[in-house]
């Protein structure tokens, strides 16, 4: 059942897309090395029998109440928009998006 996995270039390319981070090719080796040293550190943990254990959850002494449904207007709106990197009137502006565009799998140019 236990699968020891390596992070390789293929997965790294995918992960770069998922996390919207670019990396020059000459730095691939360094990141792969670091990632794999973390994974190797974790291999032993995989072998621990945790079949009867459920994933970690907090013990709560007294749960806080959920929020009552009432609307409150935020006073910082104008100042926030003023600070926004690219603003267009009442909007935030971004480069052109075509319906169905997929940010994470966009090919590197």
């Amino acid at each position: 059942m236990i699968k020891k996995m390596e992070m390789d270039e293929v997965r790294l390319r995918e992960v770069l897309g998922f996390s919207c981070i670019g990396l020059p090719e000459e730095e691939y080796a360094e990141v792969l090395d670091r990632a794999n040293s973390v994974l190797r550190m974790c291999d032993e943990m995989q072998e621990l029998d945790s079949s009867n254990v459920s994933p970690f959850e907090w013990d709560v002494k007294k749960a806080p109440a959920r929020r009552e449904d009432s609307a409150v207007a935020w006073k910082g709106r104008d100042r926030f928009l003023d600070q926004a990197p690219v603003r267009e009137g009442d909007f935030f502006r971004v480069p052109r998006i075509i319906a169905g565009d997929d940010v994470e799998t966009e090919e590197e140019e």
């Binding site: 997965r11 790294l12 996390s19 670091r34 621990l48 459920s54």
Partner: peptide, 28 residues
Amino acid sequence: KRILIGTCILTRGYYENYYVPATKVRQM
């Protein structure tokens, strides 16, 4: 670097084999 490694851990395969076991070990 940490974002990249973290993202990797949550992707398919790594999530089941590494992340989920870690949350169980955490409980242990």
